[in-house]
Design a protein around this nucleic acid. Structure first.
Lengths: 339, 339
DNA sequence: ACATTCTACGAAAACGTTTTCGGTAAAAGA
DNA sequence: TCTTTTACCGAAAACGTTTTCGTAGAATGT
């Protein structure tokens, strides 16, 4: 019902000019106390709030940052968003979220939609399909326009921008070494296909840790999941048919599937088989047994990514071509799945 | 590096007027084929995309919808967002997300930030604190301005707008009746404090179902959780000290806590105690045993909410004061926690 | 009494679009 | 040849701000 109240309307009602109203509301000394008070009271009464679209147009900045992630129904990404949102809000920015659904085309479309002035900068994690195709033209297009991009988790070396990651190799190494120190000798890893960098790198750390201890590393120790929706049988076969005494899983889901399959086969966890998972989500805390995990601190990653992006947005010299890669520390959280 | 390309720039480079460029790009017959082609090719070459901020200002609509939810690291809300995003994107809308963190003040601040022209309409679920205070002035303010609001899940009868909910009473009834039909006689329910409507209503359904079957209902059958972070002990006491043979829990977390406490106490599930949970999330699928749940179909709720909102946004007669409340069907999913 | 400095305000441009309204020239009609 | 239509294009307003500049009148200085 009540019309949107604008400077123009206030000006007309109070019989002053638009500039006077604008200045009065910003407490300009150019306007007499008398008129200032009159205008401010009127504005308060009618609950005037400056139109943010007009401000965006005028200032050539939107105070919004765009996030593109593969999925939101995924604990890790949800925590990252939570972190982004926290620091963004602190600094007066809003967060626009779009989902690629692991699809390259949707990623491109969403980027295009946001890159036309809707936002000031991007925070994103690549879709699986994008990593497979290795096609980054949409990212180049955006960065070439001078719009800052911060990538996290699923990043690419082919594109130069700020990045926030964990040291996946070191984390894979740490998980493995942790199990080895517990005296385990027959290790297996459940990972993703190699083009997903986090899976590849964690596997690499796994391999390194074993080799440093003088173990032979064979292909049968590696299971690489392609499709997350139909991997249950594969995981069951993998853990039951190989006489492992410890399993590393690159995410919670794989870990809990392995855990269940092993228990079904009569194995005891952690006595017979120990398990270390990645991503310290809700599953790890409430599975039976609870899972020892390498926490990725998604909240922190999101916060750091947002801080870097905003820093860049508000820095004066725009041609600052120095990009940083922040490595967020992982945290090993011991629970029941390891002795 | 490369400057943002605008109509003005194209016009200058091609020595025509801005209007000509605009018309040419929209294939106006007022412009000759020759100039049209020239302009369109130039635009394509420099990858011109109309500035969405300018369009928003001109059209007085942003094609963005704002979501305010208590938490994103929560499977149900994540699925709702996913649903909203899906249908919003289909219709050319973008989604802006803000988190209240269950805080009234943050909810108000975020609403104010978005209500100043940033978005065309709201989809929201109330924070716990808001429900406790019963203070809805921020919602009134927004709806009075003529901005459509669609509430879901945590709604209030005090505010008139479109709503998308499940029939919580019926769902509580269904869960209870399901257990009764399985022959269970000593039921308990783990719920939230009463000012959270979903907890209250589901408890109500629980009570009704028991009474219809002629059972006495006592207070000791109800546990009402206030603080989700420190409820583990309460739940353990509740389920262990009362000789229940069946438990209804208003969310997954409570259910899995109950399940673990019971197993620790030597009870078998579902033989000794059966459990039905609400919210068909990841925990229900992977807990041990897996949980029978009442699925709230969050994805669908989000989709419906978005559809209603967009419908309202695009309807011509703006003074349409008829609000609907859509009830999304729940789905009982049987798993191992019930016989 | 005249020049100068304040005080208090308004006009207008700019951000990037779309659209309405004219307007000029050439083509068509008479 | 003169008028009317048509094809093609530009000027300007509008969306809601902020900000620069200009200026009228009052106050101050000499």
């Amino acid at each position: 019902m009540a019309q949107k109240i604008t400077l123009k309307k206030i000006a007309k009602d109070l019989k002053v000019s638009i500039s006077t109203v604008s200045k009065a509301l910003r407490d300009s000394h150019e306007i007499s106390m008398e008129t200032r008070d009159k205008i401010k009271e009127y504005a308060r009464e009618f609950n005037y709030k400056p139109n943010s679209i007009a401000l965006s147009l005028k200032n050539q900045k939107t105070k919004k940052i765009g996030i593109i992630i593969p999925e939101i129904v995924h604990h890790f990404f949800a925590t990252v968003i939570s972190g982004v949102e926290r620091v963004a809000n602190e600094k007066g920015y809003q967060v626009i979220i779009t989902l690629s659904g692991e699809s390259f085309d949707k990623e491109v479309v969403n980027m295009d939609m946001l890159a036309n002035g809707s936002i000031d900068g991007f925070i994103m994690s690549l879709s699986k399909e994008t990593m497979e195709k290795q096609d980054f033209h949409h990212l180049r297009e955006v960065t070439n326009q001078g719009m800052p991009v911060v990538m996290f988790d699923r990043v690419s070396n082919d594109i130069s921008c700020d990045k926030v990651i964990i040291d996946d190799v070191a984390a894979g190494h740490e998980a493995t070494e942790f199990l080895l120190r517990k005296g385990r000798k027959r290790l297996g890893i459940i990972s993703t296909v190699d083009y997903v960098n986090v899976g590849r790198l964690r596997s690499q750390g796994f391999k390194q840790a074993l080799q440093q201890r003088g173990f032979e590393v064979e292909d049968r120790q590696f299971l690489k999941i392609e499709d997350i929706d139909s991997c249950e049988k594969d995981i069951e076969n993998f853990v039951v048919n190989n006489n492992f005494d410890a399993i590393v899983a690159v995410n919670e889901l794989f870990a809990v599937m392995a855990s269940k399959a092993l228990q079904k086969a009569g194995k005891k966890i952690p006595e017979d088989v120990a398990i270390v998972a990645f991503t310290d989500g809700i599953l790890s805390k409430f599975a039976s047994p609870t899972l020892t995990t390498i926490g990725q601190n998604g909240e922190e990653m999101g916060g750091v990514a947002a801080a870097i992006l905003i820093e860049k947005l508000e820095s004066k010299n725009h041609d600052n071509e120095i990009y940083e890669t922040v490595i967020v520390k992982t945290t090993l959280i011991e629970r029941e799945s390891t002795p």
